[in-house]
Simulated scan of single mutants.
Amino acid sequence: MCAYTAEVDRCDCNIIHEEVVNDVRRHMPDEDILLNLSDIFKVFSDSTRVKILCALFQAEMCVCDIAVLLGMTKSSISHQLRILKQAKLVNYRKDGKVVYYSLADEHVKTIFNQSFLLVCEN
């Protein structure tokens, strides 16, 4: 059996639990899926993009409104929105000359909300 040492937070054993390893291996997603998931988390790693998502969690907004809210240029907001669109986290719609952005779907709201709750609990 493994001896787990909490003080140094490491396992001091050399035993491989083959049944566990093999079971987990069978349930691991394909590498492409894991890379795509990693890319999503990279998008969430930028505080400006998180601020934009937070704003869009509350309401649909145009670039000008987001820029004023965050105290940034329209150009920098547009750049971040482009990344969020490529990651399929936001949608947009045109109304005349104005382009409004919103969260893509309930999945994005769930990811954002669950992450927010996790941070607030710690």
Results as ranks from 00 to 15, higher is better:
N113R: 03
L118P: 07
D32K: 13
D39P: 00
A55M: 01
S47Y: 09
R82D: 13
T48R: 10
D23C: 14
V20N: 03
F112M: 02
N122W: 11
S75D: 13
L117D: 02
L37H: 04
L81G: 06
D32T: 12
A67V: 03
E121C: 09
C2Q: 11
H107Y: 15
H107D: 14
L118C: 10
V68L: 12
L56Y: 01
L103F: 07
E19P: 05
D12P: 08
V21R: 12
R26W: 10
L103N: 06
T5F: 14
P29G: 07
I15S: 09
D9G: 06
S38E: 01
I66N: 06
S76L: 10
F44R: 03
K85C: 10
I40G: 03
H79Q: 12
V43A: 02
V8D: 11
A59K: 05
S78L: 09
V50S: 02
C54H: 01
D9M: 04
V90S: 10
S76W: 08
I66R: 03
G96N: 11
N36S: 01
R25F: 15
S102E: 15
N36C: 02
I111C: 12
I66W: 07
D95F: 13
H17D: 10
M72I: 06
P29K: 13
D46L: 01
L84G: 08
F44Q: 05
E31W: 11
D95C: 12
D23H: 15
K51P: 03
D23M: 15
D65A: 10
G71V: 01
S115C: 04
L69W: 02
D105T: 10
E19L: 07
R10M: 13
V108A: 09
A55G: 01
A6L: 02
D30K: 14
H17C: 04
N22E: 15
C2Y: 12
D46E: 04
S38R: 00
I33A: 04
T5W: 12
D30T: 10
D23S: 14
E18S: 08
F57W: 00
D39E: 01
K51W: 01
L34S: 02
C64K: 15
R82A: 11
E19H: 06
V90L: 10
A59N: 05
N91P: 09
L56D: 00
L69S: 05
L117H: 05
L34F: 03
A3D: 14
H17L: 03
L103T: 06
H27K: 15
N122E: 12
M1V: 13
H79M: 10
V99E: 10
A87G: 02
H27Y: 12
V20Y: 05
H17M: 04
Q86F: 08
